[in-house]
Simulated assay, not measured.
Amino acid sequence: MSTVGPATSAYEAVLARRSYSKVTDDAPSRDELLPLVAAVSRVADHSNLNPWRLVELRGQAREQLGRAFAKDAKLTGHAADKLAAKPLRAPLLIAVIAVRRPSEKVPKWEQDATAAGVAHLLSLLLHESGWGVMWRTGSHTRSKAVAKVHGLASNERLLGWLYVGGIAQPQTGGGKRPVDPEQFLSAL
């Protein structure tokens, strides 16, 4: 685990959040993940549908995902190898899956938003616990080969993966620049 210390408030945790495109081979254990997953279940969730699930990918599961990337792209040779190596950028990938449940009150987009909220909260909790995290998405989330690897049902949509690993060196600065809040907050 890295030396990133815990935030003392949700506000500080949000301000400290950053994406780590490069991480070490350390990763949280399943036992370390379970309480974080329990905590993210507190996300805003209209009708308590729990329209999400998470899948851990470690070791050979990441290689299997990489092969699905290359198959989807119909690549061979060096190009396929390069694409297949992408899931190996972190020792742990957590697939975030929106599970669209039948509901007359809660539309599919709102259920997807809940699943996205789970991903963001989990990334905050992992970062606060000292892990480097990057949420990766892309066209592969809609690939038939990738869907098969994750065992997606017809009512499920893959939103992406949290790439998780150790933080090589605590980073200062960088990250996203704050926006001008006046441009994003208006009155009616």
Rank of each mutant, 00 (worst) to 15 (best):
E32S: 13
V37C: 11
R42N: 13
D31P: 03
T24W: 07
D31T: 12
S47Q: 13
L34Y: 00
H46I: 03
L49T: 07
S47C: 10
D31I: 00
E32A: 15
N50Y: 08
L33P: 01
W52C: 08
R30L: 13
L36E: 00
S29C: 09
L36W: 07
L33R: 13
P35F: 04
S41Y: 02
R30C: 00
P28G: 11
D25V: 08
A27V: 05
A44D: 05
R42A: 12
S41C: 10
P28W: 06
V23N: 12
A27N: 04
V23R: 15
R42Y: 05
A39P: 08
R42I: 00
V40F: 02
V40C: 04
V23K: 14
V37D: 03
S29Q: 06
A44S: 14
A44Y: 05
V23Y: 10
D25F: 00
A38Q: 14
L49Y: 01
A39H: 12
L34G: 00
V23M: 15
W52E: 04
V40W: 02
L33H: 05
D26Y: 04
E32G: 12
A38T: 10
L34K: 13
V37N: 08
V40I: 11
P51E: 02
A38G: 07
T24V: 08
L34H: 06
A27C: 07
V37W: 13
D31N: 11
R42S: 11
A39D: 14
T24H: 11
S47V: 07
H46N: 06
V43W: 01
S29Y: 05
D25E: 15
P35N: 07
N48S: 09
D45P: 09
P35D: 03
R42P: 00
E32D: 15
D26I: 01
V40P: 12
A44M: 09
D45T: 06
D26W: 03
N48K: 10
T24M: 10
H46F: 03
D25C: 00
N48M: 10
D26N: 12
D25R: 15
A44G: 12
P28T: 11
S47H: 12
A39V: 01
L49F: 01
W52G: 07
W52Y: 15
E32C: 03
S47T: 07
D45V: 05
P28V: 11
R42F: 01
V40L: 04
P51Y: 02
A27K: 14
V40G: 04
D25W: 09
S29K: 09
A44W: 05
N50G: 00
V43Y: 02
P35R: 04
L33C: 08
P35S: 08
P51K: 00
W52A: 06
H46K: 09
V37K: 08
D31G: 05
D25L: 12
P35T: 08
L33S: 10
P51R: 02
D31C: 00
D31Q: 14
L34F: 03
N48D: 04
E32K: 13
H46R: 11
A27G: 04
A44Q: 10
T24R: 13
A38L: 10
L34M: 12
D45S: 06
V23S: 11
S47I: 00
V43F: 02
A39K: 14
A44H: 09
V23W: 09
S29P: 10
P51A: 02
T24I: 09
